[in-house]
């Protein structure tokens, strides 16, 4: 649970922290749309480079952001594999045959087992996993052949590889952008910025204050709930619930024994919170002053201006092509 860093603020002092949340949110939206629209490889590479510069100049540790990418790693692998295997445009890069016979299958199994038993000693688990996959593919292609009892062609085209790289880069850029926003902006500032930006929705009778309130309460309680879940699991474990093991039937009981107390505690908490807010005369949507007032600086104007320029530029280029 600890490596989900989307939505986690880490204190710092660089210029990214000094920016107003409104300008950060606006720029994020503009740049995200631009990333979606962008359809040239050079453009993507430039964006990726800009992203690295942004991280370096903003003194954000790149390993942190990479860690943030971990949860979507599986998704990345999937899109990459599917794109690479099933797109058949452009020149043929790789044209080999995967042989399945006793030699290759035994060898692959050996590779797999080596990986399986040594993986806990290796630090870069993802790279190690990739190495395992690549070695198995190499084994299937090149090992001295007996009689195959099955074989499939492995054909990879230029279009497939490019498409796969393209989608990967797009995903990486988008996740990095949102990670930068959430790493450098306190959740409270984020919701305040959102509240201000959504003000115009009043015309269609949607109160941005209430939305912001709901979001900030939800954000406030996520860590609390995680903590609570942890404590409940311990309490049930001491009554003999083994959350790591058990058949399907046991699993259901385990989950019920976790969820029921979670719900009860959450309802109780929300009740208490509502009472506490009412006791302090809180009325949603009422005008009130703020302890922290958002300040718009010159830097914010420049940031939004720059993002808008990038946005317009990308749109124009794409339309012209």
């Amino acid at each position: 649970m600890n490596n989900i860093i989307i939505g986690q603020y880490i204190p710092g002092t660089s210029y990214l922290y000094k920016l107003d949340p409104r300008s950060k949110i606006l720029s994020l939206v503009l740049l995200m749309v631009a990333t979606f629209v962008l359809d040239t490889m050079t453009g993507m590479l430039i964006f990726l480079g800009a992203m690295v510069i942004l991280l370096l100049s903003g003194k954000i540790s790149i390993t942190r952001v990479l860690n943030g990418l971990k949860p979507i790693f599986v998704l990345l692998m999937f899109t990459f594999t599917f794109q690479a295997l099933f797109v058949t445009t452009g020149t043929l890069y790789i044209d080999e045959i995967l042989h399945f016979n006793y030699y290759t299958i035994t060898a692959s199994l050996l590779v797999f087992l080596t990986w399986f038993f040594s993986k806990k000693y290796i630090k870069y688990s993802i790279l190690y996993f990739l190495l395992m996959i690549v070695s198995i593919i190499l084994v299937l292609i090149y090992l001295p052949q007996g009689t195959d009892f099955a074989s499939t062609p492995l054909q990879i085209y230029q279009g497939g590889v490019e498409g796969a790289l393209f989608i990967m880069m797009r995903l990486i850029i988008i996740v990095t952008l949102s990670t930068i926003l959430t790493l450098t902006t306190k959740p409270t500032d984020l919701t305040l910025g959102l509240e201000k930006l959504l003000k115009p929705l009043k015309i269609i009778k949607i109160s941005s204050e209430e939305i912001a309130l709901i979001i900030s309460i939800a954000l406030r309680y996520i860590p609390t709930l995680l903590d609570e879940a942890n404590k409940i699991m311990l309490a049930q474990a001491s009554r003999g619930v083994d959350f790591k093991e058990g058949k399907l039937k046991d699993k259901i009981v385990q989950i019920v024994s976790l969820l029921v107390p979670m719900f009860i505690i959450s309802f109780k908490r929300s009740d208490e919170l509502a009472n506490a807010m009412e006791a302090r005369n809180f009325v949603p949507g009422q005008r009130r002053t703020r302890l922290h007032v958002l300040l718009w600086h010159k830097l914010d104007s420049y940031t939004v201006l720059l993002s808008s320029l990038v946005f317009v530029f990308v749109i124009v280029i794409t339309v012209i092509r």
Binding site: K120, Q236, S238, G240, I264
Partner: peptide
């Protein structure tokens, strides 16, 4: 460091009964 330690913990938890501070955490 090894995740797969094979020690069975459940028998210990039966021998040493621990009542938690807050009953809400266990009633379900």
């Amino acid at each position: 460091k090894k995740k797969s330690s094979k020690i069975k913990l459940n028998p210990l938890r039966q021998k040493i009964g621990l009542v938690f501070q807050f009953p809400d955490y266990q009633l379900f």
